[in-house]
Simulated assay, not measured.
Amino acid sequence: MTSITTDRRVEIIKALAHPVRLEIAQSLADGPRCVSDFVEKFGCDMSTVSKHLTLMRKAGWVSCEKKGLQVYYQLSCECLPTFLRCIESIGEDTSACDC
């Protein structure tokens, strides 16, 4: 296994450090979604949602596939939902993570 730099680790973690990006990640845990789904859900414009998704894609959290005129995004990191549940458990009780 190749080791990545601390800077790259920070970049990957920062890609989730925004309320909309966290919500996108949680939504994608249920399956692929297109940009318009997130525009509707968050009330953001398409370019804002696309920027969030591009940042998440560059970090490696999501991948995308074009189907006709729509681009569908999906999680490329299968452990992300577990990671998010772990964060929730820490938030509820800072003494331990139950993951």
Rank of each mutant, 00 (worst) to 15 (best):
residue 46 M to H: 13
residue 57 R to P: 03
residue 44 C to M: 13
residue 69 L to C: 07
residue 56 M to T: 02
residue 51 K to C: 10
residue 73 Y to D: 00
residue 70 Q to F: 08
residue 55 L to Y: 03
residue 67 K to W: 13
residue 40 E to A: 13
residue 61 W to A: 08
residue 55 L to I: 05
residue 44 C to S: 12
residue 64 C to L: 03
residue 46 M to L: 11
residue 43 G to A: 11
residue 57 R to K: 15
residue 55 L to F: 04
residue 52 H to C: 07
residue 57 R to S: 08
residue 60 G to V: 03
residue 53 L to P: 09
residue 61 W to F: 10
residue 61 W to K: 05
residue 63 S to V: 05
residue 51 K to I: 07
residue 73 Y to T: 03
residue 43 G to C: 10
residue 69 L to A: 12
residue 72 Y to K: 06
residue 57 R to Y: 03
residue 50 S to R: 14
residue 54 T to Y: 15
residue 58 K to D: 14
residue 41 K to R: 15
residue 53 L to V: 06
residue 47 S to G: 08
residue 56 M to G: 07
residue 48 T to Y: 12
residue 42 F to C: 09
residue 49 V to G: 11
residue 55 L to N: 09
residue 61 W to V: 05
residue 44 C to P: 00
residue 53 L to K: 01
residue 44 C to Q: 14
residue 54 T to N: 14
residue 50 S to G: 09
residue 71 V to F: 02
residue 55 L to H: 07
residue 68 G to E: 02
residue 49 V to D: 10
residue 60 G to K: 02
residue 55 L to M: 06
residue 52 H to F: 07
residue 46 M to T: 14
residue 51 K to M: 11
residue 54 T to M: 12
residue 72 Y to C: 02
residue 54 T to G: 14
residue 71 V to L: 02
residue 44 C to T: 09
residue 70 Q to R: 15
residue 71 V to Y: 00
residue 64 C to V: 04
residue 68 G to F: 00
residue 69 L to V: 10
residue 70 Q to W: 01
residue 56 M to N: 06
residue 53 L to Q: 02
residue 60 G to H: 01
residue 61 W to Q: 10
residue 52 H to Y: 12
residue 65 E to K: 14
residue 52 H to K: 06
residue 55 L to C: 01
residue 41 K to W: 02
residue 40 E to V: 11
residue 72 Y to R: 05
residue 72 Y to W: 13
residue 40 E to Y: 09
residue 68 G to Q: 00
residue 57 R to F: 01
residue 59 A to W: 00
residue 54 T to L: 15
residue 45 D to S: 00
residue 62 V to Y: 02
residue 58 K to L: 10
residue 73 Y to F: 13
residue 69 L to E: 12
residue 40 E to G: 06
residue 39 V to R: 02
residue 57 R to E: 13
